[in-house]
Simulated assay, not measured.
Amino acid sequence: MPELDLRLLQSFLAVAEEGGITRASARLHLAQQAVSAQMRQLEHTLGVALLVRTSRGVLLTAAGRELATGGPAALEHVDRLVERVRGVARGESGKLRLACKPHATAEFALEVTEAIEARVPGVDIELTTASTLPEELTLLATGAVDAAFLWAPIGDPRLPYAPVRSDRRMVALAADHPLAGRRQVQLADLADEPVIRPAGPVAANVLAHWLAEPRPGGRLAKRGPAADRSEDHLLLVARGRGVWLAPEPISRYFPSPRVRWLPVTDAEPSTLVAVWTPESPSALVSRLIAEVRALTGWHDS
């Protein structure tokens, strides 16, 4: 079996595409004599004539046309093999088990998963859906998943995290609420509105974020009923039991004729973070963070 030098194949493809050694030499930044020597060496290795030299360049023989047709795929195959080998060396192989709330990640989860699996073919990303923060934290704590996407603060200082997206804050109001006709509101407009809050035991900083505290002048938010899932929050809003402050992606994921979503112009934005366990495959987590940030346009300040 002949030993095909990939550099010779790359040069041949340049000659075939350019239709001549002179133009190919300029493209490859090599001397014409060097490219001519490479073509003779390639023909000798394969034992066939690939080119017919003419006064206006070169013509491909039947064998040359066959090599020009199949050569790019061969190079791409080798490139992908090299990337897989390097990925294994970097630890970018194996399985990454990822938990995500659809309303938080619907705009990028599948795109990121497909991008990573395409660029690092040895990777298998397993997606698990969760509806609430406690569900995701439980999945992480029990080792059922390696990483998750949460809105900060996450309420568990033991877990490392990295920000990947910033979302402006919206408020959900009943469609017949007196403020529903506005285009936007401020926190002062919501001062007397009961705010629907997370159910169950929640860390103080997590609760403060979802209530948008402290308010202007240091005032605390009026506590409304508690709910666990996003759907339950929206049912309470639609029934006029309170308002719900939430990141903007939720407003796109849960449109409802009974609920009106408005931007809250002076509320701190919500930051979506990738969270992982200390036992997670660090190389895969790093690749995940990089891919999500590339998609969302996040830049560390």
Rank of each mutant, 00 (worst) to 15 (best):
A191R: 11
L190V: 13
A152V: 10
P163C: 00
A141K: 08
E193T: 00
A148D: 09
G143Y: 06
A148S: 13
W151S: 11
L179S: 10
R165F: 12
A144V: 02
P194F: 02
R168F: 09
D192S: 13
E135K: 00
L187F: 07
T138K: 13
L139G: 02
A172H: 01
A152G: 05
G143A: 01
I154K: 04
A188R: 07
P198L: 05
P198F: 09
H177I: 01
P194L: 07
R182E: 06
E193S: 15
L137G: 04
E193K: 10
P198N: 08
P163R: 02
P194H: 02
Q184V: 06
I196D: 06
P160E: 11
D146F: 03
Q186F: 15
A191Y: 04
R197N: 10
A141S: 07
L173N: 07
H177D: 14
V164A: 07
V185S: 00
P157T: 02
L140S: 04
A148T: 14
V195Y: 11
A188H: 05
L190I: 11
L190R: 06
M170D: 03
Y161G: 15
P163L: 08
A144N: 10
L137N: 04
P157L: 05
S166V: 15
I154M: 08
I154R: 07
P160R: 10
R168A: 10
D176I: 03
L179P: 11
L150T: 02
A172I: 03
E136N: 05
D189W: 06
V171T: 02
G143T: 07
F149N: 07
F149Q: 01
P178C: 11
R168L: 14
E135G: 01
A191C: 05
A180K: 04
R168K: 14
L137T: 07
S166D: 14
V164E: 04
Q186H: 13
D156Y: 01
A162S: 08
A162H: 10
L140T: 11
I154S: 03
T142I: 04
L179C: 13
D176H: 11
E193C: 15
I196T: 05
R183P: 03
L137I: 02
I196L: 14
R183T: 14
R168H: 14
A141Y: 02
A174R: 11
A188V: 09
E136S: 09
D189H: 08
S166A: 15
D176N: 11
R197H: 05
P194C: 03
A147G: 09
A174C: 12
A148Y: 04
P157G: 10
A172G: 06
V145C: 00
A148P: 08
R158G: 15
L140N: 11
E135L: 00
Q186D: 12
A188C: 13
R183K: 13
D189Q: 09
P153W: 03
Q186C: 15
